[in-house]
Nucleic acid binder design. Sequence first.
DNA 1: CCGCAATTGGTACTTTAGTATGAACGAAAA
DNA 2: TTTTCGTTCATACTAAAGTACCAATTGCGG
Lengths: 144, 144
Amino acid sequence: MKKTIFLYGAGMAALIILLKTIEYNYLIRQLNIEIYLGIIAALFTVLGIWVGIQLIKRREKLQAATSYKPTSSSENNSPAPDISEREMDVLLLMAEGLSNQEIADKLFISIHTVKTHSSNLFSKLQVKRRTQAIQKSKEIGLIG
Amino acid sequence: MKKTIFLYGAGMAALIILLKTIEYNYLIRQLNIEIYLGIIAALFTVLGIWVGIQLIKRREKLQAATSYKPTSSSENNSPAPDISEREMDVLLLMAEGLSNQEIADKLFISIHTVKTHSSNLFSKLQVKRRTQAIQKSKEIGLIG
DNA sequence: CCGCAATTGGTACTTTAGTATGAACGAAAA
DNA sequence: TTTTCGTTCATACTAAAGTACCAATTGCGG
């Protein structure tokens, strides 16, 4: 949370510095004021889109946390290793045949994170490939 | 789609009109140019946030549409795509989580042949990856 | 005999998957 | 407050999967 605000402020500062540089150097005397305003509008529109996406991600994370609690503490005793909630998300999408990139898009995380989760998943399931993970997790009743 | 674009354009137009009104009436002569730029930045940031939210919504809708497609009309157009005997062998071992090399060893053929079979298999099943092939062949009852 | 499909094998290439390692942050527990 | 764990992201690498194109063999039916 604080990090996002800091990054937002830093981005703003960087933009302001950039604009000041443009203004006081050479461009502002040659360019039309309309073009200058257009550049500012475009830049801050992009910045706003980024902020909006960040807000969506945060909200969805909070919603998921409040709605999905009873996933991994009920019946998994000996055969089911303690798969975390996020690893379970990856596993389910994996079983549907999605690629890592598609899983990343659907969960709003990067493909690197998907690889991290899946790698940990394979370790916990003691398998080497995603096809084996699907097969084994169905065997031990992790997924339907 | 078109509606969103129209709304976006309308929002832009309204903003421009507002800015022009501010500029040509009274504020621009009294206020500092910095404040004027700040107002523009803030307005377009808000606009960008809105656009970002719209983009997220659209993408989620598309994902839902694509993910729910194969439930209704997948088993009527391809109840039995003529899978050859050897392709079936590969598919069965594939569903057990074996790699191409392991399948090749088990069938006493080269890995190239396994790739050929699996590639033809994916074309016939209209999928792109082995995980999807397993999922789909179970859906349409090709394998148990 | 000839065409056709299936099977097998290959080269060369791009894409995806997976590993190893490190880093950062937040929340919860100790 | 410090530690631990889960989550996130990243780079750099190797391994596996998949595609495109080609070619030889075999068996079957016209």
